[in-house]
Amino acid sequence: MYRPLAVLLIGSLALAGCNSRLNPANWFGSGRSVPVQGSADNALIPEQRPGLLSRREAPDLSQPIAQVSELVVERKRGGAILRATGLAARQGAFEARLVPTDPELRPDETATLTFDFLVVYPEGDTETGSPHTRSITAAYSLTDHQLENIRAIRVRGAENALESRR
Rank of each mutant, 00 (worst) to 15 (best):
A139E: 15
T112V: 06
S30K: 15
V155P: 02
F117H: 01
Q67D: 04
Q91I: 10
Q67G: 00
F94K: 01
T133L: 08
A80D: 00
I153S: 04
D116Y: 05
R56L: 13
Q146I: 11
R3H: 09
A96I: 04
L113T: 07
A58Y: 03
L87C: 13
Q48A: 13
F28P: 03
P122I: 04
I81Q: 07
A80F: 03
I136K: 07
K76T: 03
S164I: 03
A80I: 04
L142K: 15
E109T: 12
A40Q: 08
I65Y: 02
R97W: 00
L142I: 15
P107M: 05
Q67F: 09
V99C: 08
G157I: 02
S30Y: 06
A80C: 02
P103H: 03
L53K: 13
N23K: 12
G31H: 06
V73N: 08
L52N: 03
A40M: 08
R106F: 14
Y121C: 12
F115H: 00
L61A: 10
E123S: 15
G124Q: 05
E104L: 07
A25H: 07
E123N: 14
T126Y: 15
R154M: 13
L15P: 10
A161G: 09
V36S: 01
A25N: 13
I65H: 07
A58T: 15
G157N: 09
V120A: 03
S62P: 06
A139W: 06
E163F: 00
L52R: 14
R154V: 12
R32S: 06
T137C: 03
R97H: 12
S130F: 06
R97F: 05
A88E: 04
L13W: 12
V99Q: 12
R154I: 09
Q37K: 07
I45P: 00
L5M: 04
A25M: 13
A66R: 15
M1D: 09
I65L: 07
T143G: 04
S39C: 09
L9M: 00
L15T: 12
P64T: 05
W27I: 06
G157W: 12
P122E: 08
K76A: 01
G78P: 08
A40G: 01
A25S: 13
A25V: 13
A139N: 03
Q63M: 05
S135M: 10
R56V: 07
P59F: 02
L118Q: 13
A161F: 05
V34D: 02
A161K: 08
T110M: 11
K76N: 05
L9I: 10
N42W: 11
T112C: 02
G129Q: 06
T112K: 10
Y121H: 10
D125N: 14
G79H: 13
E109N: 03
D60L: 09
S69Y: 04
